[in-house]
């Protein structure tokens, strides 16, 4: 399988990358790990005349803690960089936990965090746990930069609010009160399978009471989706198994799954109900896992 011709640039700065993207507009595509862009080009879903590679932007590979800001994950950190990050293992093991459920080892050694976000498939495994932990993204464009809640980045299947000249440079997990978080996914196989449905939950528990909860569902709507009614229902209530089961039912009502060859919408709703209950329980009992 061969790729069509294209022009290739590997700029040495983010500014230069944004300039190139701005100059070539719709003809250009940003490439990072290549595990989505090259597959789409091979499948003839994408035929960019120009590829702008950010492989030289070493500063985008960091995973670090910045006091007052939070945990900063560079957009070019690879999935396996998350899986084996000591910092994340200490602070939010739920992020490596989600990263490890993605694809398989070879893809996790190439694919990047930023790529997983901007590819914007509804079944992406990283955004739910990141959104559950209130992640924001830093975006740099030809005309300036901005920060945005990660959940506001997605506008539909395979689409984001990013302008053609904009690049996500980092994901920031702010310091938080959440005492636990986790991501649970159901795929048709244990590896190399997209989520049929997934649920990430983050909880703030004090004295057996749910002070706050964030529930994010994947593969059951056009974008990663918050289950806000289930979240509101939980707030301030004493934690019981019945309460969590009821939150699961509410999340299942809120999600908007489709029938496709992987599963029926009805089955996906059932998965959301069960996984919401289970992921809440796990986050409550085991912390960030």
């Amino acid at each position: 399988m061969y790729l069509p011709d294209f022009e290739y640039f590997a700029p040495d700065s983010i500014g230069e990358a944004c300039q190139l993207l701005s100059q070539f507009g719709a003809k250009a595509k940003l490439i990072s790990g290549g595990t989505d862009v090259l597959v789409k080009m091979k499948n003839e879903l994408l035929a960019p005349e120009v590829l702008v590679s950010i492989k030289n932007l070493e500063e985008l590979k960091k995973i670090e803690y910045v006091p007052g800001k939070g945990v900063v994950i560079g957009a070019r950190a690879k999935h396996n960089d998350l899986v084996y990050s000591e910092l994340l293992a200490k602070r939010y093991p739920s992020i490596p936990g989600a990263a490890k459920q993605m694809a398989h080892n070879q893809i996790r050694n190439s694919g990047t965090v930023g790529g997983n976000i901007v590819n914007a498939v509804p079944s992406a495994d990283l955004p739910p746990i990141l959104i559950a932990l209130s992640a924001t993204v830093h975006i740099v464009g030809a005309k300036g930069s901005r920060s945005l809640a990660l959940e506001d980045v997605f506008t539909g299947p395979n689409t984001t609010c990013l302008a053609p000249d904009e690049i996500i440079t980092e994901v920031i997990i702010p310091d938080q009160k959440m005492t636990g978080s986790t991501y649970m996914k159901f795929g048709l196989r244990a590896a190399g399978a997209l989520a049929v449905a997934g649920v990430a939950a983050a909880v703030w528990v004090e004295n057996g009471v749910m002070k706050d909860a964030r529930i994010v569902m994947s593969a059951v709507g056009p974008t990663p989706m918050r289950a806000k009614k289930a979240e509101d229902f939980l707030k301030g209530k004493k934690i019981t198994d019945e309460l969590l089961a009821e939150a699961g039912k509410k999340a299942a009502e809120e999600c908007k799954p489709i029938d496709d060859y992987r599963a029926s919408a009805e089955y996906r709703r059932n998965l959301v109900s069960v996984f919401t209950k289970r992921s809440l329980r796990k986050a409550i009992d085991e912390g960030h896992v």
């Binding site: 290549g34 597959v39 070879q106 050694n109 190439s110």
Partner: peptide, 29 residues
């Protein structure tokens, strides 16, 4: 060369000691 889409692993090579799919790597990179 197998699936050439990063699914099958026939093209696995070690890059800096880590397995990657050589079908999804541009030679220039």
């Amino acid at each position: 060369r197998g699936c050439e889409l990063g699914d099958c692993g026939s093209c696995t090579v070690l890059m800096e000691g880590k397995p990657v799919n050589a079908c999804l790597l541009l030679a220039v990179e």
